[in-house]
Design a protein around this nucleic acid. Structure first.
Lengths: 224, 224
DNA sequence: TATAAAATGTACCAAATGTTACAACCCGAT
DNA sequence: ATCGGGTTGTAACATTTGGTACATTTTATA
């Protein structure tokens, strides 16, 4: 049994009514698979020739290097699709090993069938293009971010970007620890640098809001 | 006048004959624009609502931060498309300022028209999906790369990846300086680390070829 | 309100990297 | 063969960051 109410909330089917999803899926082949908690859903390196959409439950994705040990983890829950950027392109293999956090139900659509979907329904096509593009943009953004050498620069970049042209005060939604992870630095290092920038009169921190005091000097930081 | 022989070599139209490109383009609106050397083609931040394909000449893309200074450069020549990953997605703005290196001729296809193309021709759709996916994968790979903390890890990752399962000797095509830039580290630091790894018996360097002596310990480096 | 858990601000030291400088080497052009 | 430019190896030193530890504050929950 397909959970249409769930699927139509998936990024892939966004904007379609449950009936619309039903209609779209009518013409194509697909499977619904169930996995028990802990079960491996896809192994890293496996050919990615199908689109997987989580219908129920959550999974974790672990990246494993050649030596066999897992490094990083990402959690995905219904109604997210899995590794959508790896269906096409030159590297058609799952970069991660995916296993079930809970009991999981997946819809598995073979690539060829999914292509039919894309061609028959312009909304799904648009959705999918948006998914991959957004992913590429996200990664691109993150890369630009990592290209800054010092923590000061990362902070300056982050704040100025978030503040835009007029705003002076930026509200941080994440914890300092999350911010540090996003910056790719150690949490105490981030706190220290924030403290230094405060003392130097560049910014003013107060909880989760940061006020930019000296924009010119912040700009200067990035010119290097 | 459209240069069909050039366009059909573009990643977007790959696999189509010149006549096929002609046929595909017949139904849609598009423009051919010419720019003089040095002229700005798109400003960073501008809305990206059209696909641009270079028909002749080459362009350079510069990323400029808020302080107005350009940072990085990428060169693109015919028959490459421009910023193809930014036509869709949430951030529909050019991330870079593009200007003409030489006299340049571009084909400009409005987004709405391009969508028609994608829907009418499954080959173009497949090509485009491949372009964005490949880009996402490339970025993802690069990001994984930068996620390694130490230079040793970066070297180990790079060498093991390049060597694959059997090869022991890896030929480097770039200079040490280029390699360092790719790693995002200072050149002397890279040289130093290579030297250390040599002395420790992990590798053996000789000009632009590096021999992996102790694969197990190299693996171990990445687990740490 | 009381209490535990999480988040934050700091300090110290060790490790890694950047910076600068210079010598040795390789390679191509004259 | 020789000269010069680019590449590589190395050293010494300054900076930055990571890691660990702990006190303090805030937040969540009973």
């Amino acid at each position: 049994m397909i959970r249409l109410e769930i699927l139509c909330q998936s990024p892939v089917f966004r904007g379609l009514s449950p009936e619309g999803v039903q209609t779209s899926l009518n013409g194509i082949h697909f499977q619904v698979k169930t996995y028990q908690k802990g079960e491996v859903i896809v192994m890293g390196g496996e050919i990615c020739d199908r689109l997987l959409i989580i219908e129920r439950g959550s999974v974790k994705a672990e990246m494993n290097d050649y030596s066999g040990k897992t490094i990083k983890i990402e959690d995905l829950a219904a109604p997210q699709p899995l590794a959508s950027a790896f269906l096409f392109g030159t590297q058609n293999r799952f970069p991660v090993t995916v296993s079930a956090n809970t009991e999981v139900e997946l819809v598995s659509v073979p690539k060829a069938e999914f292509v039919k979907l894309l061609q028959s329904n312009s909304l799904i096509l648009d959705n999918y293009l948006n998914i991959i593009s957004t992913r590429a943009q996200f990664l691109s953004q993150k890369l630009k971010f990592l290209s800054f050498r010092t923590i000061r620069q990362k902070i300056a970049h982050y704040l100025l970007e978030k503040a835009g042209d007029r705003l002076q005060t930026v509200e941080i939604r994440q914890s300092q620890a999350q911010l540090a992870e996003m910056f790719g630095v150690a949490r105490p290092s981030l706190a220290r640098t924030l403290g230094e920038m405060c003392r130097e009169g560049l910014i003013e921190t107060n909880r989760r809001s940061i006020k930019i005091l000296d924009k010119p000097r912040m700009d200067q930081l990035l010119k290097g």
